Amino acid sequence: MTQHFDVIVIGAGPAGLHAALASAREGASVALLDDNPRAGGQIWRQGPGHSQHAPLQNLLADLSRRSNVMHFPSTRVVAPLPPRGLLVESAEQGGLCLTYGRLILATGARERLLPFEGWTLPG
């Protein structure tokens, strides 16, 4: 099965959520993909035992009201497909082919400490 979107956003952290919302407000059909089951990225994802932060709640509420946004949680990109496609997989939907007009990578960052002697000294 193949689905086409004007914009595919990979990553549902703060940057990805804002990119999806900005695209949707302009009338684009948007697919929002994230490999985690809950949106929020490293900034707002605190686990199922914590309530969502207000900025995340507001973004998710705004996105959920829009009929032109489809959220794909727990979904990973398996391979790029020419000319403008992605093979993705999720436990819920199995394999899908998504095609796009524009692709936004908002994969975020994770702090990795590389300790070395003196790394905590000022300057």
Rank of each mutant, 00 (worst) to 15 (best):
A109C: 12
E92N: 00
E92T: 08
R102Q: 15
E111V: 13
L98C: 01
S67H: 11
Q93E: 12
P82S: 11
A79S: 13
M70V: 12
F72D: 09
A79C: 07
L86H: 11
F72C: 09
G85V: 08
T107D: 11
T107P: 06
V88A: 11
R66H: 07
C97D: 10
T107V: 14
V77Y: 03
Y100S: 00
T99Q: 03
E89R: 13
S90F: 04
L98W: 15
L98M: 04
R102H: 13
G85D: 04
S67E: 14
G94F: 01
V78G: 01
A79G: 01
P82N: 06
R110T: 10
V77A: 03
R112G: 02
P73V: 07
P83Y: 01
V69R: 05
T99N: 01
R84E: 10
T107R: 12
V78Y: 00
L98V: 10
L105E: 06
A91S: 10
T107Q: 14
V69N: 03
P80L: 12
L86Q: 09
G101P: 06
R102K: 12
V78P: 04
V77T: 15
A79W: 10
L103P: 05
L103G: 04
S90R: 00
S74G: 13
V88R: 06
M70W: 02
P82W: 02
F72K: 00
A109G: 11
L96Q: 15
S74D: 15
L96M: 15
L105Y: 14
P73S: 07
Y100F: 15
L103S: 02
L81N: 02
I104H: 12
S67K: 13
G108D: 13
L103A: 10
L81H: 09
R112H: 10
M70G: 00
L96N: 08
L96T: 03
R112Q: 11
R112T: 11
V69D: 08
P80C: 04
L96E: 07
S74L: 13
Y100T: 07
E89Y: 12
A106F: 07
V69T: 08
R76E: 14
L105M: 14
R84M: 13
A91Y: 03
E89F: 04
R76N: 10
E92L: 12
E92H: 06
L81K: 11
L105N: 08
C97F: 01
C97E: 15
S67N: 09
R76F: 10
G108P: 10
V77F: 09
E89Q: 10
V77N: 05
L105K: 04
A106I: 09
P82H: 08
V78S: 05
L81M: 07
R76L: 07
C97Q: 15
V88T: 15
R110W: 03
S67C: 01
R66N: 07
R112S: 02
R76K: 14
R110I: 08
V69H: 08
G101N: 01
V77H: 11
H71L: 06
C97S: 08
M70F: 09
L98D: 04
Y100L: 00
P82G: 12
P73C: 11
R112A: 08
N68M: 05
V78H: 03
L87C: 13
I104F: 10
V88Q: 03
G95D: 08
R102F: 02
A109F: 09
G108Q: 03
P83N: 04
E92P: 00
L86K: 12
Y100N: 02
L96S: 06
G108F: 14
A109Q: 14
T107I: 15
A109D: 05
G85T: 05
